[in-house]
């Protein structure tokens, strides 16, 4: 699956986009965030405070229990500040 990072999550994770293959048991947004946080100290720092991490699955806002699969595009970003 493709994972995108925006704003300070990108800065902290040290990467804007990556293709990952999580273990079979990782099937929800929450489980994916837990697994991504183990990938590097930067990932851990980016995902340390989940209350300020928003998630989109295939460009739609998603909650922690939403399912994720191999063909999905997952985006992680802080609360938005446009306008």
């Amino acid at each position: 699956m493709k994972v995108l990072y925006f704003s300070w999550l990108k800065t902290r994770a040290g990467i804007g986009e990556e293709t990952v293959t999580p273990p079979a048991g990782v099937a929800s947004v929450g489980a994916l965030l837990n697994w991504l946080a183990t990938r590097s100290p930067g990932h851990a720092a980016a995902l340390a405070n989940r209350s300020v991490v928003r998630v989109a699955v295939n460009q739609e806002y998603a909650t922690t229990n939403a399912p994720v699969g191999p063909n999905d595009e997952i985006a992680l970003f802080p609360p938005v500040t446009g306008g």
Partner: peptide, 11 residues
Amino acid sequence: WLKTKAPFWKL
């Protein structure tokens, strides 16, 4: 609504 929903970030 766009200020709280549209995925933009200001640096």
